[in-house]
Amino acid sequence: MIEARDLCKHFHDKKRGLIRAVDHVSFTCQPGRIYGLLGANGAGKTTTLRMLATILEPTSGDAIVAGHDVIEHPERVRAAVGFLSTATALYPRLTAQEMVEYFGRLCGLDESTLKLRVDDLFARLEMDSYRDRRCDKLSTGMKQKVSIARTLVHDPPVMIFDEPTLGLDVMAARSIVSFIRECRDRGKTVIFSTHVMSEVEKLCDSIGIIHDGKLLAEGSLADLRARYAETDLEEIFVRIVAPLAPAEASS
């Protein structure tokens, strides 16, 4: 489970002064469900997810991930999380297998468990044909699968996806979407950020709409449709964020 409580993250910029990238954000994600964080670019999605993955430290507020406090025990949190984004690249001079094994070892797996996990993942994701190929020689789709195997090698109960389909072609994006669904079916807590409405409609059990660092609306797709008397998610999104950013919404 993920429980974000009043999370805030402030940055100081020489030109713009104090930036409230995340401003008192609270939400809960349940195991076996997918929580979609929907927002435009710069809304605060990545910063929120990075705080949950303990890559960034909150300025204030707190979060509990898989029973561990992100501030008190960041290493325990990371051991319980699989984090995937388009920014998390692969080491070019390692082979696909070495890449997955490396992260398995960093997650504290012993050698026998690691071997079993790696063999199972490579078989499930149909990666055996290129397990000894260097990552810089892999296609985008192959790289995506290696990244998935890397996030799953320690079998984490919580999965965090930060715009995982950004820049991918249709086929690669579809495999990511089906992988996210599979994670939910296996009972994992899944949080997923995107600005693609169709992905949210297809995948998410709960949706949080974030804009300018603030969580403006939250609920299931059905809840949001009923609350705003509108079936089109894009329209709902625009109505929620428009009063705050008319120029952005109209564009």
Binding site: E75, F83, Y91, L106
Partner: peptide, 14 residues
């Protein structure tokens, strides 16, 4: 530059 720093930072290593 290659984007592997963030990958490494997601691991439970201090």
């Amino acid at each position: 530059e290659r984007g592997t720093m963030e990958t490494l930072l997601t691991s439970p290593v201090s």
